[in-house]
């Protein structure tokens, strides 16, 4: 019987994906592109909702992972 998966790799993944948010806020030069024109609108209004969607999908996938982890 295989050992149930542990969650720490996913916690690390979430942390790594999440880190750009505060770093960009503290170092706005890194995010100069957010005010650029993408498809006729500022990049931020596409990039930030896309980033939110990413974490929604991580939460969605965590549901199945969590169920397997807990047997």
């Amino acid at each position: 019987m295989s050992k149930p998966p542990r969650p720490w790799a996913r916690v690390l993944l979430a942390a790594v994906l999440f880190l750009p948010t505060p770093i960009v806020a503290a170092r706005p030069a890194l995010a100069g592109f957010l005010a650029d024109d993408w498809l006729g609108v500022p990049a931020a209004v596409l990039a930030i909702p896309a980033y939110l969607l990413l974490f929604i999908l991580i939460a969605q996938s965590n549901s199945g992972f969590s169920a397997r982890m807990e047997g």
Binding site: P7, R10, V11, A14, F18, T21, P22, A25, A44, I48, Y51, L52, F55, I56, I58, A59, N62, S63, F65, S66
Partner: peptide, 16 residues
């Protein structure tokens, strides 16, 4: 956006 992204990270970890 910090106020929007951080709670979703929290909820993802809460679920996990």
């Amino acid at each position: 956006a910090l106020y929007y992204i951080c709670p979703l990270v929290g909820f993802a970890l809460m679920l996990l």
